[in-house]
Design a protein around this nucleic acid. Structure first.
Lengths: 133, 133
DNA sequence: GAATTTCCTACCAAATCAGTAGGAAATATT
DNA sequence: AATATTTCCTACTGATTTGGTAGGAAATTC
């Protein structure tokens, strides 16, 4: 299940995309507009920056902005940052140690297919398409 | 992410399906065969019975068996028992209170589409198709 | 120098997860 | 009737995750 971490990250991305005018927008502004705790956003959003999805600058009049056009982002790449690769089961998650039962596992192929389906689905939705314009 | 609860439930169903000869199989047997704690299975598996997916009887020579042919089960109906309706986000889960932001939510349609995709995917996989035969 | 903003670390309460413990009730076998 | 086996039921527990808060350092603008 997608956590608030991932949903908040997506909301921030949508917020930035809708208000996009090329200038930096502070988390404080977004937090107020989206009614999310500023302190919590300060913990979540830097991971988007580290992943190269947004760019931010410190200091007065600082804030964040998108790196590229909203049409160029997919929901998949946003969610993968916070949701550990969108793995449906632990053994497919990034950094999982390999399962000793894999050779006899009846379900691994199904989970892999589902992970692909999930990535294809979210990979086909652009950030732009979520915006209210 | 699908928890061990759901994965164990599915493994038990596959085990029952593969060894299906119409007689009851004890959890002890399954626990040993699948290398899962008996005590833990005793907590998980009764929910499958309550949902009408398996039938069990107490007492010596008791145990569980499937109610119908493995071809007649879908993975979806099994997972829905333990995984709260396979909802991708909290607001779509069974028993969730309705979201006050729903009217302005940019993403709810996407989550609903994804939930449908998920249910269609797992609904198309039969228990039988997972078995090693 | 003051104000504002990101950045960073540590902390915290509640919930969930994964599992254990102990025994009661039901049933079959002897 | 006694015993063994099995499900059924409730309570407990330790570890991890979730969803935050707190406090302040560093960067930048005015």
């Amino acid at each position: 299940m997608i956590s608030t971490r991932g949903r908040y990250a997506l909301r921030v991305m949508v917020d930035l995309a809708e208000l996009d005018e090329g200038n930096y927008i502070s988390l404080k502004t977004i937090a107020e507009r989206q009614d999310i705790s500023l302190k919590y956003l300060e913990r979540i959003i830097p991971s988007l920056k580290k992943a190269g999805l947004i760019e931010g600058i410190q200091g007065k009049n600082g804030g964040y902005r998108l790196c590229k056009n909203p049409k160029k982002y997919t929901v998949g790449e946003i969610l993968r940052v916070t949701e550990n690769d969108l793995a449906p089961v632990a053994c497919l998650a990034k950094g999982a140690e390999k399962c000793p039962r894999k050779s006899q596992c009846r379900t691994i192929k199904m989970w892999e297919d589902y992970q692909k389906l999930t990535n294809d689905f979210f990979g086909s939705i652009t950030l732009d398409s979520l915006c209210n314009k």
